[in-house]
Write a protein that binds this DNA or RNA. Sequence first.
DNA 1: CTGTTAGCGCCTTCAC
DNA 2: GTGAAGGCGCTAACAG
Lengths: 351, 351
Amino acid sequence: MTKPKQPTIVDVAKEAGVSIATVSNVLNRKNVPLASETIRKVEEAVQQLGYRRNAAAANLSRRRSYELGLIIPHYGGYYGRFAEMLEQKVFAFGYHLSVFSAAGMNPSFEQRHLELLLQRRVDGLVCHGLAMTKESTRQVVGEGTPLVLFNGWGWPEDIVNMAVNLDFAEASREAVKRLHESGCSSMIYAGRRKGLGANDQRIEGFMEGIRAYAPNAVHAVIDAGDQGVEGTLDEALRLSQGRGPLGIYTFNDALALELLSLCHERGIRVPEEVRLIGMDNEFFAGVSYPSISSFDMPVELQTNLVAAILMQQIGEDLSETSEELLHTYLPPTGHELRLPLIYVERQSTRV
Amino acid sequence: MTKPKQPTIVDVAKEAGVSIATVSNVLNRKNVPLASETIRKVEEAVQQLGYRRNAAAANLSRRRSYELGLIIPHYGGYYGRFAEMLEQKVFAFGYHLSVFSAAGMNPSFEQRHLELLLQRRVDGLVCHGLAMTKESTRQVVGEGTPLVLFNGWGWPEDIVNMAVNLDFAEASREAVKRLHESGCSSMIYAGRRKGLGANDQRIEGFMEGIRAYAPNAVHAVIDAGDQGVEGTLDEALRLSQGRGPLGIYTFNDALALELLSLCHERGIRVPEEVRLIGMDNEFFAGVSYPSISSFDMPVELQTNLVAAILMQQIGEDLSETSEELLHTYLPPTGHELRLPLIYVERQSTRV
DNA sequence: CTGTTAGCGCCTTCAC
DNA sequence: GTGAAGGCGCTAACAG
């Protein structure tokens, strides 16, 4: 209950019969030569006293925190996986990751978390492009904290050095292509306006896909947020009326699952009458019935790249593999990097 | 690129023409009386210089971090929601929450995160009971860091002051009751051994439920990890053979969904032939077809209680509502608190 | 009301 | 190889 004041480096030094500098030296295993006897004594004292270094003091002294900050909209699905994976990647460089959820792209939370992270003097920042305001980002970068964005589109080059994005536009084009090839003569993109930039990317790609692969197809962009899921399906069916199978490409798997259930309820057969492609490749897309075709996100690659770029900005030495990764993926020009999603074909489009 | 050394309190003092103590005073709004002119000057200087307090220095000086640590197995589903909600709760007390994922109950990660948190001198810890080893927990508590567990069963009283648990056992009893009342004469619990204590609790409750409500029912506990999902369904069907509707209660909604899809595939009708109850009340349980009955977790209540108990241990003043909450829920004796789950009836059991 | 001063615990030259 | 000493930036008495 009562906090009995934890032992400090001074206590350890006393216990081991050496000076505090020596203790610090053995603890931080620098390139300083130490007598093995000294090392032993110190380690014993540490063990004995249950010494644990005070991070605040160490950070203050070194003027580095070896801490990185990550701001994401929430912990669910892709973002959670991203956080977990990034944590592992930066750990390999000796850094620790502090994760904050902006509670659904809420700018006030974002602001708070950012402020906190900066007070902690994090050595670098990884932010979700959609959870950040331009102003705070500019400020951060202006103050000199290395920052890399992920899934941020259309950021001016002068405020963001590098954005590592998933190529939703390309995936959307592919979705149209797949649906068209499977014989859909009418195609719908069921979006989520609140998905912001991520939704815009999909719309853009969808329209490009239509132009490229199915210029004559009946098509439309419907917002599931506006129309509701039922409204979306109604509208989609109305548009495709009698023109053979209807293809629906959705903002994410969750929406696809809702549409799938609705089809079940109404006795509409999937994939015979309606074909679905989702996005995110969530667990349930694989085990629903019928299973839902989707796009898998290269989270491992993305986090690897984010980590490498950030470490480079911080001035850390990169491993060979990291170097190679950057060579392979960094665009020769520009400040945006697009990673391809992987299409996973399942029963909802299999004819 | 070059970090131009952020302004310190000294710079602000100089700029404002006051002493550093004064700056510290206006910044920390203590019960110290300040001249409004002084305040203005300081705030202006802060604005001017873009001053941001160095958390490490402040923590070191105050010997408090106003930081709390949370260790969970992963960010998905319930845990993610728990983290987000707890963050809000403790923020109301002026604390910040650092969340760490133990990457699936991996003890080495747990150890690492714990060590880090302790080095940061967090003022308190919230840990998932299943992600912690007894040894490290004992050590932490022994060193005097306030700790509250959530979903930890069977912890010796001498190492854990309080555990705030979801009452999976009671929910499992209820599941049996519901299935039995709906007319199931055979009932299965499809578990996940790797769920550890959480699974044990369900098994215990399931068996008690059988004894209490349906002593004559054919029943069994099957582990989906051992048998696979298909194996589980086969086994369940074999046991219930021809004895009317089969009730399956699952470890979680994910497993329930898998079983549901399998039923679809084999043309087994849900709920006519098989009735399902899941656990977690995940998004997809509500929108699958048919929708899956499940148990909703009182995350808000749980996080409220965890926050209140921890704040109390730290010695923070509680609000009236928090006090009341503790009065209502704290057990008169013992060190474990059980919160009821809420049954959500859906189509998978509706006859 | 404001300023002076002594740490907080650790790291890091720089002598020895 | 090891130790002494001066910060790191801020807070908290305590004077004034």
